[in-house]
Write a protein that binds this DNA or RNA. Structure first.
Lengths: 340, 340
DNA sequence: TTGAAAGCGTTACCAC
DNA sequence: GTGGTAACGCTTTCAA
């Protein structure tokens, strides 16, 4: 493996000069620069990550994390990932500051970002609200030289450098495909229980789902309701829905707080002849998949969503590595047999 | 983050002494040792990986890889992982030597291992034959101080330090669960097409499958045949099977070379009313999942199987990290909608 | 039993 | 524009 030292020797210059060229710091004579680049290419030079990281420790990097969902079990697994990567990065003198808030609220997120900037973060990972104020704030950070990666939910119009998370549309399509596979009635009348209409990922899943069934005369959506991630609301909605539409034989829970809905299904004695599909692997979905009430749950690698953004930011700040803009998580299907 | 230097200062000794204690090299006065350990614990000392790796480069590590399946598409993805981790490790002055052979053959594997030892490898990753000679060879290496990790298929009785691969039994159970979900006939008469009876993973999958359906009167295995991973054989077997057992309405392909079998299904006009489940995401399974002939394929993270063993061996040799003995891959379910 | 010093590859700073 | 040097944390070797 070629090193900077080697290149320097071959080019007849010092390591400092090679470093200036390779890291585009300028202030090098064009001829020298050309010579160095040529040699680097000929040797297929790739920087040594251990050396870079060791040297980067003196920068005392700080990474900020902003997420909603303090009381959302899905984020427990994300936090697990955050914890692990945080402990790894702490060995490199890089610390992580997490701001986590309970609800979907634009102002809280912006305040949290401002706090992090005051703390002196060098980069930001955020599970963002889909709100113009947040987009604007991310762009401000970009102007200040602070890169941002969105995770869990994307803001494609912002100046974020990358996204890590689910392809929600495809995820909804997968649910449609699963329902069709599982169906043995020949005619699926589907009730959809969303989370919040303002949350992009919930609506995107439903769009993907609709997209898939629109040419299939055997699958129809009878009703779409929104539980706002609240268990009591969910119970009431499903209870009403099943009473009003006796023909419903399949339910698609696109978001959290499903336990209430499942209770309604059981109370109406429909737990044996209803196809139910949900998302994510959280205590409630695990329980009902195991009991057989839910046949499958479609997941999005939450642990990975915690780890990857920070890993990418650290690499970006240290090695300057160019990274993929879109990093979709795998669409995982869990049934009773492989859920744990 | 505390460093060795810091501990040395606090203990009033040199860094070398601290290193000797921390890495159990011996030759340190018990009192000094106790003092150092105490301080390390109090500071929650964790070694800096970048420093370790940088220093380890002078060892010029060599990792050996032995695998069968040169002409098996499943291993293409494994090789992809090997290539990526190889390129990463090459930056750390660590090289990888791969010996890959076409067939299931004990002697070839042993010869390959011997070659690698002559090449001076420091550790071995092997997708092993389930043969006593291989076990013995692994134990020999262990005695020589060369650690081995098995992947794809395990040899639990050997002195290998870890295994990375599928839990085949659970994988077969998952297939049974999927079949039951997908079934809409109420009575599944199942034909099983295995690979080779001598290959543990194929038989294990079938065991798991049987295990799951044994209490289910709606699922019966009608026939089990072995295609020896050969396409022509597979065609013949399935063709015969479907002609002889008209009642068969589900097929479970537990191994490779399924294209011939699928052709037989189509030729007999059974591609619309047959439940078919296979393993792995290779060109043939992708094609038939997309066409709808195969409803689902159950996978085992082949890329990860290429990356993880070498990553673990490198970490083991450099940081001396204790590693998990059993590392099961995720059991991934792919259907038409999430297969690409 | 212990200390001192060199070396791994990179970056940053100061001097010229 | 360029060179020299110190620093990051760890391991290893040699000397005492």
């Amino acid at each position: 493996m070629p090193t900077i030292k080697e290149i320097a020797t071959l080019a007849g210059v010092s390591r400092g000069t090679v470093d200036r060229v390779l890291n585009k710091r300028g202030g090098v004579h064009p001829d020298t620069k050309a010579r160095i680049l040529e040699i680097a290419k000929a040797l297929d030079y790739r920087p040594n990550k251990a050396g870079i990281v060791l040297s980067a420790q003196r920068k005392n990097l700080k990474l900020g994390v902003v997420m909603f969902g303090t009381n959302n079990p899905f984020f427990d697994e994300v936090k697990h990932g955050l914890k692990d990567i945080g402990s790894e990065l702490s060995c490199y003198n890089c610390s992580i500051i997490i701001k986590s808030m309970p609800d979907f609220n634009e102002k809280n997120q912006i305040d949290a970002i401002d706090d992090l900037v005051k703390d002196g973060i060098n980069a930001l990972a955020i599970a963002p609200q889909n709100q113009p104020g947040v987009v604007q704030k991310i762009d401000e950070l970009a102007a200040m030289g602070i890169p941002t990666i969105t995770f869990n939910s994307d803001l494609p119009t912002s100046k974020r450098i990358a996204y890590v998370g689910s392809n929600y549309r495809k995820s909804g399509q997968t649910v449609a495909g699963l329902m069709r596979l599982i169906d043995h009635s020949g005619q699926l009348n589907i009730g959809v229980i969303g989370g919040a209409q303002s949350v992009l990922c919930h609506t995107e899943r439903i769009e993907g789902f609709k997209d898939k069934i629109k040419d299939d005369s055997h699958m129809n959506i009878i009703d779409v309701v929104w539980n706002n991630d609240d268990d009591v609301t969910c119970y009431k909605l499903v209870d009403d829905m099943l009473k009003e539409h006796k023909e419903i034989n399949a339910l698609y829970f696109t978001a959290g707080a499903i336990a209430g809905g499942c209770r309604a299904i059981i109370e109406q004695g429909r737990d044996k002849d209803m196809i139910v599909i949900a998302h994510d692997r959280v205590p409630s979905t695990i329980e009902f998949v195991k009991s057989g009430l839910i046949q499958a749950t479609v997941c999005q690698q939450p642990y990975f969503q915690g780890v990857k953004p920070l890993q990418m930011l650290f690499d970006y700040l240290t090695t300057g590595e160019v990274l993929n803009e879109i990093n979709y998580t795998d669409i995982e299907i869990y049934i009773k047999e492989n859920i744990d």
